[in-house]
């Protein structure tokens, strides 16, 4: 820090342009409880809500949030929803709540949140706020005693590509972007006001065992695993459909190249003949010919997203089985004793 004092104003001005990357999302306990309550009450329906807070350096503080009503496919109601949002913001501002949107939260089922819609929403938010975050909560996993809360953002390189709508193989290779790089997970920090902390210490029950412990010890994990695998299979089908699209594309591409080649050969032969006859050679390109029309390359976005989802399911399966091993061995030890 000391040598930064010595820099010229110009340098300082130049460096300030570069936004510090988002490192931590700091969430208030209040927000966690609100999100969990909202998501759980409406589970298995998926719900969303808005996050309010402050953007402080590399930390994004989420200090409050409010839920959105369940959306319906009706324009009138949609306008109503916008009104609701404005009204809520106004009301919250009146009671001194931070009135700055920093992102949104949404619930998910078994973590299949990597969809095109999510990316679209994210881009929409990103247009208006420089730094935004999406918090994902999975109510189905909390039955296992885990706090399945995740803060996500899209990586910058992915956003660039998305803006230009450029998901061809070349571009991706150029940017060196693979499916892992679409989403960035940001570490979550929890903070509570001293007052809340005092109350919670006061209210904590004396019992040595809490509900969370019971949930963690629950031996049955097969329904969860079964559904995970079901979704995994679905995703696999999707992925193979995507792969087929590519195979189809490549087949078409090779066929076209062969045709082009043949045409070129013919044209050259022809030109040779014309040259021999002392005529002007024909051009070696013919844009009007349909075989020179480039075949559009299918977007790789969907297959990337599906891959992401699959990886997510695999991680979950790994996590759950890992825990189950623990539980089983614990059970065994108890029984042996």
């Amino acid at each position: 820090m000391a040598n930064s004092m010595a820099r010229s104003f110009l340098q300082v001005a130049a460096t300030e342009e570069v936004a510090t990357p988002l490192r931590v999302v700091q969430i208030e306990g209040l927000v966690i409880l609100k999100i969990i309550k909202h998501c759980k009450e409406f589970s298995p329906a998926l719900v969303t809500g808005q996050l309010l807070g402050l953007d402080v350096g590399s930390v994004l503080e989420v200090t409050n949030c409010f839920p959105f009503p369940i959306q319906e496919e009706d324009e009138e109601i949609e306008a109503d929803g916008a009104n609701y949002q404005l009204e809520m913001m106004r009301c919250l501002r009146e009671v001194n709540v931070d009135n700055n949107t920093v992102g949104w939260y949404q619930s998910t089922m078994l973590g299949c949140f990597q969809t095109v819609e999510l990316i679209e929403t994210f881009m929409n938010y990103q247009e208006n706020i420089r730094r935004c975050v999406c918090i994902i909560y999975d109510p189905s996993r909390s039955n296992q005693g885990a706090l399945a809360l995740k803060a996500l953002k899209l990586s910058d390189s992915f956003m660039d590509l998305y803006r230009n709508n450029n998901f061809t193989g070349d571009k991706l290779r150029e940017k060196n972007l693979s499916w892992v790089d679409i989403f960035e997970e940001i570490p979550i920090k929890v903070s509570n006001s001293a007052l809340v902390s005092a109350f919670m210490t006061e209210l904590e029950a004396d019992t040595p065992v809490t509900q969370c412990d019971y949930d963690r010890l629950r031996l049955s994990s097969s329904p969860f695993l079964a559904r995970n695998v079901e979704f995994l299979i679905e995703c696999m089908d999707d992925l193979s459909a995507e792969q087929q699209k590519f195979q189809y594309y490549y087949r078409n591409l090779t066929r076209q190249q062969a045709q082009q080649h043949a045409w070129l050969q013919k044209r050259r032969d022809e030109n040779k003949a014309r040259k021999a006859a002392g005529e002007e050679p024909l051009p070696e390109e013919d844009p009007s010919n349909p075989i020179f029309k480039p075949i559009p390359e299918p977007s790789r976005l969907e297959s990337f997203l599906v891959t992401n989802r699959i990886a997510n399911y695999c991680n979950q399966i790994n996590g759950v089985t890992g825990q189950s091993f623990n539980r089983l061995y614990l059970m065994k030890a108890l029984h042996d004793n």
């Binding site: 306990g29 966690i32 409880l33 969990i36 909390s142 005693g145 706090l147 920090k189 929890v190 903070s191 509570n192 006001s193 001293a194 809340v196 902390s197 919670m200 210490t201 904590e204 029950a205 809490t210 509900q211 969370c212 949930d215």
Partner: peptide, 12 residues
């Protein structure tokens, strides 16, 4: 309790 008092009772 589900969330865990450890998270809720400390300031950070």
């Amino acid at each position: 309790e589900r969330v865990g008092f450890d998270i809720l009772k400390t300031t950070s």
